[in-house]
Amino acid sequence: MIGLVVRRFFQLAFLLLGISFLVFASMYIAPGDPAAIIGGPTASESDVEAIRDNLGLNDPFLVQYGRYVTNAVQGDLGYSYQTSQPVWDAIVVRFPNTLKLAIASMIVAVVIGIIAGLVSALRQNSLLDVSATTFALAGISIPNFWLGAVLILIFSVNLQWLPVGGMSSPWYTIDGIKELILPAITLGTASAAIIARMARSSMLEVIQADYVRTARAKGVKESSVIWIHTLKNAMIPIITVIGLNFGFLLGGTIITEKVFAINGVGRLMIDAIAARDFPMVQGSVLLVAALFVIVNLVVDIIYTYIDPRISFD
Results as ranks from 00 to 15, higher is better:
T70I: 02
L159Q: 06
I294K: 03
L153H: 03
S120K: 08
I294C: 05
P170Q: 03
W171I: 14
K232Y: 04
A261T: 12
T134D: 00
S223E: 04
S191E: 11
A43T: 12
A36W: 05
M269H: 00
L127I: 15
I270E: 00
Y65R: 08
D277C: 09
R52S: 11
V69G: 12
G78A: 05
G39A: 00
L287C: 08
V220I: 13
G264A: 09
F9P: 10
E45F: 14
M1A: 13
G283Q: 07
F248I: 05
I270M: 01
Q85V: 11
M167V: 07
D53C: 01
A50M: 15
V220D: 05
G165T: 03
V298R: 04
V5Q: 02
D210F: 11
I152L: 11
P237I: 01
Q160K: 15
D53L: 08
R216Y: 00
N97F: 00
R7Y: 06
E222A: 01
L12Q: 06
L77Y: 12
A234M: 02
M269K: 03
D271L: 12
V164F: 13
E179A: 15
M269W: 02
L187C: 06
L180F: 13
Q124F: 12
I185K: 10
K232V: 04
T304Y: 02
L180D: 14
M198C: 02
D76A: 13
